[in-house]
């Protein structure tokens, strides 16, 4: 098999496991990223808390990793646009994960504001990856607006419930030309493998690894699952049938 690289923006990426860095202790960060084999990580942007002496997360992320700041905390397109520009001024490149979330109970994104923010940030020269509720019309609109990928949620953020939106994500994978990255809700390696088998271009997860008892081992488990699902997708899976089909020859039986 030749190199199976994922093209996003101006980058070619070998690892289809994108990792959120939330809730991962900084001293463990490098080990987790390396075990996951990940090349794209998300970070958030927040006010400095003058009462705390925090270390800088960027010091714990291996060189060469693509850093994708998110716009978490934004409730409107305008807030997301402001955060994206602040993040770019932080010097980590031009990738941005747009996250516009007005609802605190389910943390579901506002697709309309997300589209507005995408349109503007593409014009401003960002590589824009919007987090979205899986809706085909919105996904196509995001694509038309110049999004580098679309990132439908599998289940609400941090729930570890898997691909609850499977049917709708499937439609987006079928109909969109940009990479589809399943973001949020993936709780187990089997969920990640399932997304990749469906033809997702990548998955983005955070909580499932960060809250595992052994997050380094879990990062490896997800890496293998993502690779396995991807290889299975490329290999072309056999179809399902309602009745049994013998695997062994039905001739030459003994009397």
């Amino acid at each position: 098999m030749g190199k199976d690289l994922l093209a996003i923006g101006n980058s070619l990426i070998a690892s289809r496991l994108f990792l959120g860095t939330g809730k991962i202790p900084l001293p463990k960060m490098k080990q987790v990223i390396e075990a996951a084999g990940t090349q794209v990580v998300t970070v958030a942007l927040r006010r400095v808390d003058f009462d705390r002496r925090d270390e800088n997360i960027l010091d714990f992320i291996p060189d060469g990793t693509i850093i994708m700041p998110n716009t978490s905390g934004a409730r409107t397109a305008a807030e997301a646009i402001r955060l994206a520009h602040l993040a770019r001024a932080g010097g980590c490149g031009d990738w941005v994960k747009i996250e516009v979330i007005p609802d605190q109970k389910y943390l579901l994104p506002d697709n309309f504001e997300t589209l507005k923010a995408t349109e503007q940030l593409v014009k401003d020269g960002f590589t824009v990856l919007p987090y979205m509720s899986p809706d085909l019309v919105v996904a196509k609109s995001l694509e038309a607006a110049g999004a580098a990928a679309v990132m439908p949620l599998g289940a609400p953020i941090g729930t570890n419930r898997g691909l609850k939106m499977k049917e709708l994500i499937n439609i987006i994978i079928e109909e969109c030309h940009v990479p589809v990255i399943v973001d949020a809700g993936i709780g187990r390696p089997s969920h990640a493998a399932e997304a990749m088998e469906m033809g997702a271009s990548a998955v983005l997860l955070n909580t499932a690894i960060a809250t595992a008892d052994d997050s380094v081992a879990m990062a490896l488990a997800f890496r293998l699952a993502v690779e396995s699902g991807r290889i299975a997708y490329l290999a072309g899976m056999g179809g399902e049938t309602g009745y049994a089909r013998a695997s062994s020859p039905l001739t030459g039986f003994l009397d």
């Binding site: 860095t21 998300t42 970070v43 958030a44 400095v48 997360i57 932080g90």
Partner: peptide, 10 residues
Amino acid sequence: LEIVKFLGGG
């Protein structure tokens, strides 16, 4: 004035 920094996030 707003002074911001990166931290862990998903």
